[in-house]
Computed example of a mutant assay.
Amino acid sequence: MVLACGGAGGGRWGGGWGGGVGVSGGVALVGIVVLIMAANKRPFALRLARQLLRLLPFLNPDAWLRRIDDLLLGLHSLTRFRDGAMLIFLSILTWLPIIFAYYTGLRAVNLQPTWAMAGFVVCAAALSIAAPSSPGQIGVFHAGVFAALQLLGQPEANSLGFAFLYHALNLTTMVILGIIGLMGTGTTWQQVVASTRKYRQKQETPTNP
């Protein structure tokens, strides 16, 4: 996905946008390498993170250390070449249908996308909803997709049309599949809410260092 972000802008943006995207893609790749190295040296990385968090008293050090530890644990498989290669391969297989869906969606609103453009819009959408936001990512998803398409010089009406169309179809599909899943497992909505609240309370409870 980083490569798609970097490659989408080269031939479509004027001024310094193309170079800026290339630089941001390079920075992202460096960041990934640093994270993998940190996962390989997890105890040292956690000690370093603890020292840095002491300089930021407005943050909850226990909560942030737990998040960092979870991140490094999730990246640990990338420290082994065979497992990392398999994970990258499976990730590509996962993202290809999404890029295809964006590509066909862009064509559905009378745009003429390239595969690189579709990949870049996917990146923008993923980044826009990465941070905590409104339920269903309403608003932030549309803003991220619209901004990406505007940077690529696409018409405003078509860009907004795609953002609303894709989000509506995606959200509707997830809701329907979620209802089917709940019915299939015999789980009630109240149980889902109670489980979510219990998980959030557990995450917010400080732990002894």
Results as ranks from 00 to 15, higher is better:
M86V: 10
S128G: 02
Y199S: 11
M174C: 09
A125Q: 10
L93H: 05
F120Y: 14
G184S: 13
I99K: 07
S128C: 01
A148P: 01
I180M: 11
I98W: 14
P155V: 10
A118V: 11
W95S: 00
L160W: 15
L96D: 02
V121R: 01
T104W: 14
E156D: 06
K198Y: 05
I179G: 02
L165V: 04
G186S: 06
T196H: 11
T196L: 13
R107H: 02
F141C: 01
R200D: 05
I180D: 01
F89A: 12
G186T: 08
I180T: 12
P206T: 08
P97D: 01
F89T: 10
G184T: 08
F146N: 06
Q203Y: 04
K202G: 07
V145Y: 02
G105R: 04
R197A: 15
S159L: 07
M174P: 01
L149S: 08
L171F: 11
N158A: 15
L152M: 15
I88G: 03
K202Q: 14
A194K: 12
E204F: 08
A168G: 05
T188A: 00
V122Q: 10
L165I: 09
L151V: 11
R197L: 15
P132D: 00
T104V: 13
L90K: 11
A143V: 07
L171H: 07
L87V: 09
M117E: 15
E156Q: 14
G178F: 04
T94Y: 07
E156W: 11
G181P: 04
A148F: 00
L182Y: 13
I138P: 02
V192C: 13
S133H: 04
L127D: 07
Q154T: 05
A147N: 11
Y103E: 12
L127H: 06
Q201V: 06
P135M: 10
G136A: 03
I88H: 09
Q150R: 15
V121C: 07
C123V: 13
Y199M: 13
F146H: 14
F164H: 04
T114C: 00
F162N: 03
A118R: 09
Q150S: 10
G153Q: 12
Q201D: 14
S91H: 13
A118W: 04
N110W: 05
A130K: 03
L149D: 03
G139Q: 01
G186L: 09
K198F: 05
A168K: 03
A108F: 13
I180K: 06
Q201H: 08
I99G: 04
W189P: 03
G136H: 03
W95D: 00
P132L: 00
A124E: 02
I129L: 09
L106V: 03
L182V: 11
W95N: 00
L149P: 05
